[in-house]
């Protein structure tokens, strides 16, 4: 069999499956190579988080609006939107609530969906405010320590311990609870 594009013998028999119907190609080595290479250059780049975000922000926002948004900081963990934008990682679970307006279109872009339909944690009651408060208090305590406000830090520590008691023993199963007091 001869190559479909020149006179050389066809040694490559390609079945193209990406179109509507399978298409058979019979090519020589040279023509096969250039056929395959041509396609390669058109490889779509998988959208990265930064790309999607950049596009989304450019569309809807004026420069000063963007600058303002960048400075917004989560009251719980302290991360700014600018830091998230740069690192691509959020600071705490509360960010999903605090930056909801920005994250909702981003998440829809990445996943094409906006609602979880998978499993739930066993016996889950929803992330409580107490847990979020714990994150905030621990940060406040660290802050007090670095500023050498030790009395204040100690006070916050007591608050943390109290809260920790309230959140901790959830519904720990008794049957296997050997070794845990």
């Amino acid at each position: 069999m001869k190559c479909q594009q020149c006179e050389k013998p066809a040694t490559f028999h390609i079945t193209e499956l990406t179109g509507q119907e399978p298409q058979e190609l019979h090519l020589c080595e040279g023509c096969a190579k250039s056929y395959l290479m041509k396609d390669e250059s058109a490889t779509p780049v998988a959208p990265t988080l930064a790309n999607v975000l950049a596009k989304q922000l450019q569309i809807g926002k004026a420069a000063e609006e963007l600058a303002k948004l960048d400075q917004r900081a989560c009251p719980v963990c302290g991360i700014t939107f600018f830091e998230f934008r740069n690192q691509g990682r959020l600071g705490c679970p509360h960010d999903y609530v605090f930056f909801e307006r920005e994250l909702t279109p981003l998440i829809a872009n990445i996943h094409g969906e906006s609602r979880h339909v998978g499993k739930h944690p066993p016996g889950h009651a929803g992330a409580s405010d107490q847990q979020t408060e714990l994150i905030r208090l621990r940060r406040e305590m660290e802050d007090a320590k670095t500023k050498e406000h030790y009395e204040r830090a100690a006070k916050i520590r007591d608050q943390i311990r109290e809260l920790e008691k309230q959140v901790k023993p959830k519904n720990r199963p008794q049957a296997e609870g050997q070794g845990t007091a």
């Binding site: 988080l49 691509g88 679970p93 609602r115 979880h116 409580s128 720990r172």
Partner: peptide, 25 residues
């Protein structure tokens, strides 16, 4: 582990992760 620990979970978004590309399941 879910019986023993409180995993960050959101009613609409599912399991919350540091990177939004992993959120949900």
């Amino acid at each position: 582990l879910g019986e023993r620990l409180n995993f960050a979970f959101h009613e609409r978004l599912g399991y919350l992760t540091a990177c939004p590309t992993n959120v949900g399941t």
